[in-house]
Design a protein around this nucleic acid. Structure first.
Lengths: 195, 195
DNA sequence: CGGTTCCTTGAGGATGATCAACGAGGGTGG
DNA sequence: CCACCCTCGTTGATCATCCTCAAGGAACCG
């Protein structure tokens, strides 16, 4: 949880329900609000002319998203849509910045959060630029693994989602993961991937 | 300038000279220091097995670098070397974090800095994943343009450097920029690129 | 069941990488 | 001043890889 919900409501935040695929933030829009997921999950992504998409990140229960443009006078670099039916709380930029001023501990938490984001984006860039499809997919799987790697977990993404995240095409993802199954790097049971 | 030099020295920072290509930070190292460029320029990058490199960023006069791992217990995701002979000031992690605590205005400046970094990395990822070589190069050129685009500027990077930044190969960069010259998107005078 | 979403496979093609060789400029030392 | 070296830029030929396009199958859900 980033900011306490009661605190947010005290400062005038309102929460809103979004149906799956509803647009929450549009690319290139000016940033006016702080957003935090109360329930559900949000996907940030870019589309290009061909309709090909690149996923910048998923933000689920309790996570905030779309904060960077609030700090620096820039527009949103990507679009955010509800990945599932979701409940999102939003607060005006001004009040959000005020909260940070009033609560140094919260400001510090955000500094840490931003540092995490940079770190993860740096790693993503590293893998995506240099490496072969299998490396990209492994990097994605590792980055999204919950546990410490001592046992295999169900991967909660479709092949299309993995493709969008790694910049590959679905067919390529499918072919690579079947090779990975053959090499025992992952398991596939009933079309579901375990890593 | 991120942090005032006098302040840094007061807190026990020391400065050090690095010759071109000297390693300042190694990938996967634990983060113990805050670094700030006093003079010169630093390059952060990753190498892969083939020796192919990907540039995460350049940090010049007055800019700090390698801060994210100081906030979150992670190792450096990349290596930093002096791009030119440089003078770098460094301060221990503990004292750096203490400075942030003592000077809220500095902490806020870092929050803004981190937000900028995320924004720029998000844009980089967007272009690199989706787009054709020409788009990648244009994105790189735009991101590094100083002025507002009303006139052409000398691009202070070699073709190899552009390749490292965009994840392309030198030969590809060369071929694409000659096409771009033909299309009047850039000028080339005496092998130098103007954009 | 019928529809929708997701997964799978094959064939063919485009594109960027790779490899090899050479040219051009700038700086250095004899 | 010239010879050398070193870095950077350039070009062509060939190759490997991933994308594209097309078609169909499997799973899931109302």
């Amino acid at each position: 949880m980033q900011i306490d919900l009661d605190l947010l409501y005290t400062w005038g935040a309102i929460s809103k329900e979004f149906k799956k695929n509803d647009v929450i933030i549009s690319e290139d829009e000016v940033a006016h609000f702080y957003y935090q997921v109360v329930e559900g999950c949000v996907r940030m992504f870019n589309s290009n002319d061909d309709g090909k998409e690149f996923t910048q990140g998923y933000f689920c229960n309790g996570q905030s998203f779309g904060e960077p443009p609030l700090f620096i006078n820039e527009r949103y670099p990507a679009t955010a849509v509800a990945f599932q039916d979701s409940k999102i709380i939003k607060l005006s930029k001004e009040k959000f910045l005020k909260i940070l001023d009033e609560y140094p501990s919260i400001q510090k938490k955000f500094l840490n959060l931003m540092a995490h984001r940079i770190h993860s984006k740096a790693k993503t860039a590293k893998y995506i630029i240099n490496q072969k499809p299998e490396f990209r997919i492994l990097a994605f799987l590792n980055a999204n693994k919950k546990g410490n790697g001592d046992h295999k977990e169900l991967v909660p993404f479709t092949r299309q989602e993995i493709a969008n995240f790694t910049g590959l095409r679905v067919e390529t993802v499918i072919r690579v993961i079947s090779k990975m199954k053959a090499n025992k790097k992952i398991d596939i049971v009933n079309h579901k991937i375990y890593f």
